[in-house]
Computed example of a mutant assay.
Amino acid sequence: MKKLPLVSYKEVFKNRQRILKNPLPFHREKFDALGDVFRVSVGPKTTVVFTRDPGLIRHILQKNQKAYEKSPLQTKDLAKYIGHGLLTSNGEHWRTHRRMVQPAFHKKKLIGLLGIMQDAIQQELQRIKPNTTHDVYPIMGDLAFQVVAKSLFSRDDIRELMNKLQHITETNQKMLIREMRQPYLKWWFSVSGKIGKHLRLAKEGRTVIDTIINQRLERNIEKDDLLDMLLKARYEDGTPMSRRQLIDEVLILFTAGHETTANALSFILGLLAENETVQEKAYKEVANVPIGSGDIMANLGQLG
């Protein structure tokens, strides 16, 4: 590991404003200069390994994944905002909840969510005015959030609560990004009260979800959505997960399904805009498939 090229802490600090604004150009420069694997010093005794080597990534994530654990970035930094669910846990806690939650994501059950997702997408698309210049990322962020929210709760009367939860989620994600990009200021974020402020926001978000769960239980109405699947999930001894754990898992689904999806969609649209030939090919493919009617899963299977 020590033989890998190293980007010094001094160089990281020197480029701190660039990294805070957008770290991708900085890291691309380092990949071009140092190769597919290198280390970055982010503190006196802390280094992070960056790689774009497909073989190494496959070794870590597929062939030898049991030898690796999630980093403190997930299990501590992210977990303090969204709790200890599948995304932020390791070891036995992760295995126990993976076995418990996995049946909820069976293919047949996910097919039942496609109609909910499609309705949410159609509603968001209607808000986009044609022949107008738009900033794509906020639109994709709203789209991804609404799809996740409707898939979880399948309700049309909680947009105000969802707007509040979206604000909290995005605000805390921005804070986490600052912690990632400015690790040398973690002490200041703590003593200045910034961390405390965002932890209080996270508590408000948990209250929002707790309110929605209480309403679902009081109405005693079954819905074919992810919340129902999680409410019905059971440990091996037949007991349900605690309310705290349930809220953790819901927050995980919001976080994992929101920003990552918005980023991917935004990048895809950006790349399509730069390549008219591929854009036209994609348009014709979608135009020839009746996605909005019939068997949604079968229609999606016709896409390349």
Rank of each mutant, 00 (worst) to 15 (best):
L185G: 00
K174E: 12
K174N: 10
K223G: 14
D210R: 09
L176I: 13
N163A: 11
M162L: 15
R244H: 11
D237R: 09
E204R: 13
L165R: 06
M175Y: 10
F267G: 00
N220R: 07
L272Q: 00
T277M: 04
E170V: 11
E274W: 06
T261N: 04
F189L: 11
K186W: 03
Q245Y: 05
L265S: 05
I247M: 06
A264V: 11
A233K: 08
R219W: 01
W187Y: 09
E218M: 12
P183R: 08
K194W: 11
V191N: 02
S192L: 10
K194H: 06
V208C: 14
D224N: 15
K186Q: 09
A233L: 09
T277S: 07
L251K: 08
R234P: 00
S190P: 02
L246M: 14
A233T: 11
E249C: 04
R178K: 14
L227F: 01
L165Q: 14
I195L: 10
K232Q: 10
E204G: 04
L165S: 05
I268D: 01
R181A: 13
A264M: 09
Q173D: 00
E218D: 14
D210M: 01
D225K: 08
M175K: 04
L272W: 00
E160H: 07
V278K: 09
S242W: 09
L201M: 15
M162D: 05
K174M: 12
I268P: 01
I213R: 10
V250K: 03
R243T: 05
E179I: 12
K164W: 06
L185W: 09
E222W: 10
M175R: 05
L231Q: 06
I221K: 14
E179H: 12
V191E: 04
N275C: 02
E170P: 02
I221H: 13
A262F: 11
T277H: 11
E204P: 06
P183T: 08
K203M: 01
K203I: 00
L185F: 06
P240V: 12
Q166L: 13
E280V: 10
I268V: 12
M175T: 04
R234Q: 04
M241K: 01
L185A: 01
I212E: 03
T171Y: 15
T260R: 07
R178W: 03
E218C: 03
L226H: 05
H167G: 02
I213V: 15
S192M: 12
